[in-house]
Design a protein around this nucleic acid. Structure first.
Lengths: 218, 218
DNA sequence: ATGTCAATAAATATCGATTTTTTATCTGGA
DNA sequence: TCCAGATAAAAAATCGATATTTATTGACAT
């Protein structure tokens, strides 16, 4: 097949992976929902094989569950799961952040300042969301522990899912989140692990408490 | 296809998944090796689709890496990776074990005693290996944190891989491992988190040091 | 009404062939 | 000799069709 109009950058599988991931994270595909191949195939306008493979891949991110011989479903959501994510996230990010600080160097500091700058300068909501994740992952990026970073990234995304879940009932929270970010940044650059880690965890726990309230039942 | 001789219990994909997993863990498929579909298809006597899907699934376990458009390879092994696994394992199991102990009840204690009994009674090597993992996972099973347990299980398996890698040069270690297991069991039942956790981590670190020596270069 | 069993419908899993992409090989010119 | 570009071989990705399994429905006996 020759397609001169759109230079398709990636494989059909990868495209399906990204789309499905987005749809699950934002709740377009609701938690716990059965994911039927045929249905997704039509929705994404692609073949069954890429859909199937994308779903298998999403298993790694704990966004999709697979039951042998009876297909796939979006990972279920529950208050217990939300709290588990929050707790794990705090424990693992604490570990990663402290390791990052322990090995702090000027290169890392510069990457921190840069990612923070890009975050506060982000023009629109989607850009901010991306930059926000980049900033937080940069905080952990100096731990020299790729698997730990992968776990943290995974948990970050799983948490985002609950943000969208809570967003339905969203009324605004009165918190200066930019100030919290600056505190984290400064403590990191100051290389004070205890203060920095405390600022980071407070940042997460405050968001967690807010989300928990919004979630109501579940 | 009608096959009256062998009641095939599972799907081709699941069978392929188990075989490939085993082959990667034991080093039959060496770390870093390119995993060609056609080659594995013939080896496992199955179709390309099940192989492909099994490999995608193994991505979750961090046993296989996938690079878009250029296939799969067995996850590489390195000293750094080995040490990262050891450290993460100690941190995460410490957390899970302490949570388990904090919520200790007689049901858990009985499951501990039982799994320990089955381990020391295991008739042969493969049975012991399985029972050993069950015992260790049981230690963590009372944490009520499925994701944390999943991480620990994953890391346990990744560590086994290095055991096989080291086994090539294996000369025997002079350690009373059964005694270490009993210490862990007793401390857990005694609900003394500090002692129990220390016993567990020592158990891992001793094995880690031994393996590290065996690994030599890498 | 209720539970079981067969028949049907729906969905998953798998196969075999084709297309696309990557990798290896070859050739001619600087 | 060595590098660029073309060509051939190999492998990955994808498609469309078929086989298998699971889920649903409805008739029938209890």
């Amino acid at each position: 097949m020759i397609d001169s109009t759109s230079g398709k950058e990636t494989s059909a599988t990868h495209a399906a992976y990204l789309s499905l991931r987005e749809m699950i994270l934002t709740g377009v595909l609701p938690a716990g929902e059965k994911l039927k191949i045929e249905q997704l195939r039509k929705l994404l306008e692609t073949g069954a094989s890429p859909v199937r493979e994308a779903l298998s891949l999403l298993t790694s991110d704990m966004l999709v569950e697979r039951i042998d011989q009876r297909g796939f479903r979006a990972a279920p959501a529950s208050r217990a799961n939300f709290e588990e994510i929050l707790n794990l996230r705090c424990a693992l990010e604490d570990m990663a952040f402290r390791q990052s600080i322990a090995q702090a160097d000027s290169d890392w500091e510069e990457r921190l300042v840069l990612s923070h700058h890009r975050m506060i300068r982000a023009a629109n909501k989607p850009n901010f969301e991306i930059a926000h994740k980049v900033f937080h992952m940069t905080l952990l990026s100096n731990a020299a522990s790729p698997m730990l970073e992968r776990y943290c990234s995974q948990l970050y995304d799983l948490n985002i899912r609950y943000r969208y879940l809570a967003a339905a009932a969203a009324n605004y929270q009165r918190r200066d989140i930019s100030a919290e970010h600056i505190d984290i940044l400064n403590a990191a650059i100051g290389r004070n692990a205890d203060v920095a880690s405390k600022a980071l965890l407070t940042h997460y726990r405050l968001t967690g408490a807010y989300l928990s309230k919004q979630l109501g039942d579940l």
